[in-house]
Design a protein around this nucleic acid. Structure first.
Lengths: 341, 341
DNA sequence: CTGAAAGCGCTTACAG
DNA sequence: CTGAAAGCGCTTACAG
């Protein structure tokens, strides 16, 4: 049988309260007592039971990271592959903090509704807090949970709603920035392959009064399946007034695009400039040519998200409103040509 | 305050033992009693505390999946990216079973030694069992832990040691199979880019008496960094007696290779045949041309690993030896040409 | 700085 | 089929 805190207390000649204090450094203990306790713990090779600690303190010291790689996600079929870098970076960011603070990380891939997830993880006390990314839950249920001030952080932004703890990466804004970057390089005809509809972006840009879009010829291609996209790209670039710049949201589709362009006799960047996104810093380097990318600091988003969450759990936050905006940055490499020069 | 089992018992007019039996279906309860209990639980919106359940039963119902994406891993720098599909598929496989059986999954990315990991997760009762993949731990410490019959499953195989619970994917064997596949297609000069040394494979093949290697000209290129590998590939394929077939372990390097070959005036598969690995079924389809790949069933390895583990935890296994071998399969697509025809 | 003791909310032999 | 009660191994006011 494993040793318990009683065994340690007996061997050290102190009470269990004292042993607990030594372990948790929660109250001052005299140096000599502490030494005795530590010696006893060592001698017995004592390992406190996390189960008992959790029960007694009503804390699991475990955080849940909810990410959806499910078929039922609102993202296209290939999301599992497309988003794997995102997941890894988010995990690594969250994990980096978690470990330092002696917390633990549970990954959750649930398809139930938000209320049930909250009930089975938070109410059940299995988790102290949760982080949501790419969840299939609808906004109204998210708002409900936020209204209850449950210990959760979400990645994203709910338009016209400023409650809750969240991390936001200026999603639509950096797509706009990319377009403007290309425009500044003299590109007027730009094709964009994204996971969302044209309206998703354009309406957002217009409603927030973004300038400089009128003299541009933007072609939006919705990313669905591979066959479809190849076909669409081909027919678009076969035209005489074909785009001179190409933005693909999915970095994994970039090299494929280059091969297809090459097949069509188009060279990158001489004939077509390419911009994409990277979630892992430097990912664009492993291409030929090296890709000019917007780096979305997902690792950092993970760090920010847990930090907010742990601060809230530890009562270090005043109130339940906290938004951290991270800034994606455009990294110029070799895949975009300047038409002005 | 949350409702407890006492509240439910009181409202239903039964003992807490009975409530517990209804919840856990651990012993028979009369239908009428059961109905009363369920009604009371519903009325109170009762959620049992996982913390208390865990403490009382001495089980966390949580499994740990140990995977290393750390800088300190024995794998090259870019492993984080390279292995992300592996990670996701392993997670999905493990998770698929975990959820059905009401277990939970903790992801662990530790760099401490195995003994400490076992102590802080298993001894501490934070986890009921663990699965190890791509760990930096040395074999002798792994053997020590296995000798103690701790509840853990590892992915891999320890040569000349047949104890423990593990899942193996015939690592060196399927590399041999790839070579033979290419040989059958008439390829004699084959380049292989892998994460290990030539010796790692060749010695294994020779020691297990694999035939048919003598008349082959195999060039092994060790995968280190991107720049280096591009250079090596270029100089190798510039030779007149250049390889006719090219195997890259990392699927993410495939399209890049195609671009480089294309730059050199070499077409795939006409001038160079390509084979790679995929961990996500169908990953080779998203290429141009579609890549002939060995599919390593990582999802299934995850499923097998948890299954073995849970069976062991639930006492359904006789003894502590269990090896499940999964079979990678070669999926022919469009990237390999048959030189015989 | 330290100890006695209650309490956390379940599970599980044991008895009936 | 059901209940009374011990027990799981910690933490934490409270008192000194």
């Amino acid at each position: 049988m494993e040793n318990t805190i009683y065994d340690v207390a007996r061997l050290a000649g102190v009470s269990t309260a004292t042993v607990s204090r030594v372990m948790n450094k929660t109250e001052a203990v005299s140096p000599s007592t502490e030494a005795k306790v530590i010696e006893a713990m060592d001698k017995l090779n004592y390992t406190p039971s996390a189960l008992a600690q959790g029960f007694a303190s009503n804390k699991s010291r475990t955080i849940g990271l909810v990410m959806n790689f499910a078929q039922d996600s609102p993202f296209p079929e290939s999301t599992v592959q497309t988003m794997s870098d995102f997941f890894i970076e988010m995990f690594r960011g969250v994990n980096s903090i978690i470990r330092k603070k002696d917390y633990y990380l549970m990954i959750i891939n649930e398809e139930k509704d938000l209320q049930k997830v909250v009930k089975s993880f938070l109410d059940k006390r299995r988790l102290d807090g949760m982080i949501f990314t790419f969840t299939p839950f609808n906004i109204s249920s998210l708002k409900e949970v936020i209204a209850k001030e449950r210990p959760l952080v979400y990645v994203g932004n709910i338009k016209g709603y400023n409650r809750g703890l969240h991390v936001y990466s200026r999603y639509t804004e950096y797509f706009y920035d990319i377009v403007m970057f290309l425009k500044n390089k003299g590109h007027k005809r730009i094709a964009l392959v994204t996971a969302r509809d044209e309206d998703f972006f354009v309406e957002d840009w217009k409603s927030s009064g973004k300038p400089g879009l009128n003299d541009l010829d933007l072609s939006f291609l919705k990313y669905s399946n591979m066959e479809k996209i190849i076909e669409d790209v081909k027919s678009l670039f076969l035209r005489v007034d074909r785009p001179t710049a190409f933005f693909v949201q999915d970095l994994k589709a970039v090299q494929l695009s280059i091969s297809i362009f090459s097949e069509m006799g188009l060279r990158v960047p001489e004939d077509v400039s390419i911009v994409s996104l990277e979630y892992t810093k430097g990912a664009g380097e492993s291409f030929f040519p090296k890709i000019t990318n917007v780096y979305v600091p997902v690792y950092d988003m993970g760090v920010q998200a847990v930090t907010i969450l742990l601060n809230y759990l530890e009562g270090k936050t005043k109130g339940y409103n906290k938004l951290v905006e991270v800034e994606p940055v455009l990294i110029e490499r070799d895949s975009v040509i300047d038409l002005n020069t």
